[in-house]
């Protein structure tokens, strides 16, 4: 079982704890996404798993072996860097087989593995180009091919798509996901983009300030966020979180909640509801995002298609109490909130 398990990882720079007691398990052949805002320690965790950094305390297990102190080359991992880390003076072919040469793989096998990896990512026609002669997407593919050709069961990716434009990003996202499944890789994928996380992950590890905020499948995190942070990090536009003051009027609560969350798509415009003023309208084609004002609170509503209302008008909104999420004063979820 070539899964990855980390236990209580702590990494410190001076007094600053970049990673603070992180534990999770990535099962064999699954895709785990480390998600969180910039600076929350995602890359550091990945580098600890790869062995490019060493933890102050905690353990890393790969394939049930404790590799916490092993050499990076002996951990059976491959890695794709955010900057791709291609060797600029070597052509695509040499870049891809760099590791095979280091590991002294016989040349016949090298050629075969190069061929199949290059075909898998669609680079077979570009093997003698230098990285400078490739587009961003093609460079990304070289980095992928280099990881594939290594034949390692565990693949680590650090924001591999962040240097690509939006269209290419969606395309490569699918491609990486396809490769991960067809090669049955155990993949740990770092990103700050919740769309990437939601669409690819079998499991999301949501991080904040070096600690785990929540672990679970995308739907779990979306449907029952454990905190206001998780609630607002996933989903675009983010969940509405209203403070207690306005809660009284908006939801018939039985428990004492301090914050009330409601996803923008769970709110309907209706004839009998709470009256609000339309502050802004973002028309996106398939949907429209309305920004509403209610006293000093802001509320985002997502509705299908176009709307007839215009800015400054008053609309009434309504929602099913079952779609409400309750949070306490510290932003933690109160399970049975209505």
């Amino acid at each position: 079982m070539s899964g990855v398990r980390v236990e209580n990882l702590v990494k410190q720079w001076g007094d600053f704890r970049a990673v603070d007691g992180v534990s999770f398990k990535a099962l064999e052949g699954t895709l785990t996404v480390l998600l969180g805002p910039s600076g929350c320690g995602k890359s550091t965790i990945l580098r600890l798993i790869a062995g490019l950094e060493f933890a102050e305390s905690g353990k890393v297990f790969i394939d049930d072996q404790d590799v916490s102190t092993s050499d990076p080359a002996k951990r059976s991992v491959s890695m794709v860097f955010q900057s791709y880390a291609l060797f600029p003076h070597l052509d695509v072919r040499e870049n891809i087989i760099f590791g095979l040469k280091v590991r002294k793989v016989p040349s016949a096998e090298r050629v075969a593995r190069l061929q199949s990896a290059a075909e898998m990512v669609g680079l077979d026609k570009l093997l003698s180009r230098k990285p400078a002669q490739l587009s961003g997407g093609q460079r990304q593919r070289v980095a992928l091919a280099r990881a594939i050709v290594a034949n390692q069961p565990v693949c680590l990716m650090d924001e591999p798509l962040s240097n690509l434009d939006a269209k290419l990003r969606a395309e490569m996202r699918e491609e990486i996901h396809r490769l991960q499944r067809s090669l049955n890789l155990t993949m740990i994928y770092v990103t700050h983009d919740q769309t990437e996380a939601m669409s690819m992950a079998d499991q999301i590890v949501l991080l904040k300030d070096g600690r785990i905020a929540q672990i679970g499948a995308p739907a779990e995190l979306y449907d029952s966020p454990s905190s206001v942070f998780a609630a607002q990090f996933l989903g675009t536009p983010p969940m509405n979180v209203l403070s207690k003051k306005s809660v009284e009027g908006l939801c018939k609560t039985t428990k004492s909640v301090d914050f009330l969350g409601i996803r923008p798509e769970k709110i309907q415009l209706s004839d009998n509801g709470i009256p609000m003023i339309v502050d802004a309208i973002d028309y996106m084609g398939a949907e429209t995002v309305l920004r509403l004002l209610y006293q000093d609170q802001r509320l985002i509503v997502r509705i299908d298609g176009k709307t007839q209302v215009s800015i400054g008008e008053s609309v009434s909104v309504n929602w099913d109490p079952i779609d409400c999420h309750g949070f306490d004063i510290n932003g933690n979820r109160i399970c049975d909130s209505y």
Binding site: A50, G51, L52, D71, P72, A73, K74, V77, S78, M79, F81, S83, A85, F87, F98, G99, V102, R103, R146, A150
Partner: peptide, 18 residues
């Protein structure tokens, strides 16, 4: 020289000399 080049090589088991 980007630091990642050396790290990428290290993951493949390349010695400093190589």
């Amino acid at each position: 020289l980007p630091k990642e080049l050396e790290e990428a090589a290290k993951l493949e088991g390349s010695s400093r000399w190589y």
